[in-house]
Amino acid sequence: MTFLPEASGFAPRIDGLFYAMLGLSALVVVAVFTTMLVFAIRFRRGRNVDRSGESHRDLGIELTWTLIPFALFVGIFVWSIRLWIDMRTPPGDATTIHVVGKQWMWEFEHPDGQREIDTLHLATGQPVRLVMISQDVIHDVSIPAFRVKQDVLPGRYTQMWFTPTRPGTYDLFCAEYCGTDHSRMGGVAVVQTPPEHARWLASHAGGSLAEQGRALFTRYGCAGCHDAGSSVHAPRLDGLYGSTVPLADGRQVLADERYLHDAITLPGSEVAAGYAPVMPSYKDRIDEADILALVAYLKVRGTDRETPHASR
């Protein structure tokens, strides 16, 4: 790439595959074009050359140029798929940053509550997992310098991960057409060295996401039903995250981020066994950013990380 830097752990690997395929393609193009040119000159009309003999039925030749491309394709496929599986499998130590897309801006929320709009601060060497959701139509986070891209869907979390490797400021685009200002929906990813990044985080510290969620939990009245001592028969939420929830219809689901999100927006869809489906949907009453905070809070509720300062 002429002016696009390789700024993530994936970039050199993806470019390696890209250039390998480019080389192979160039080879094929040159070979076929040369052959065509040689035939075109040698057998042009009016030239006295030997044109005798039928050559149009040769099974051997046909099979050769069927099977060799096939084998090459399978090779490329395997190469690409190994890389692709890595790209889809975030490591355990990745920092989770939440992303909310809406027409036409991006909101990023760091684990300790720093929020930013259209700018994403990252540290070199630190794997990052973006957990993304849209508030309206389909968007897409694309950071070409990292060679990553992932659609951001309404109503469902999608994720991608990468490790920035080179300090600098890189374009961040919305790559899925989303309406009028699609081409203005974007910003930059700012990659800093770890000490710089730590300073940036410290200077922008607010309450952590989970703390904000705890406040929202009271503000939206969730506590009224879900706190111990409430008169309503509602599921207790302490230590819910990561557990297996038996449902009223006999299925069992893992209480992951998706489950917690859907339990707020679509409470009727997966009702916990033993409870009446009385909770109203909060779909249009809580925006996605607040839901993220609530989910962050529910993830730590009832654990030793719940109290704000224990985690510091």
Partner: peptide, 28 residues
């Protein structure tokens, strides 16, 4: 992905066959 690679094979066959048709032709 693998199916998309496979569908490229017949297209490749066609390109090679067109090229081979030129051989010993009377080309205008």
């Amino acid at each position: 992905s693998i199916l998309s690679f496979i569908i490229a094979v017949p297209s490749a066959i066609k390109v090679f066959n067109w090229t081979a048709t030129l051989y010993k032709g009377d080309i205008a």
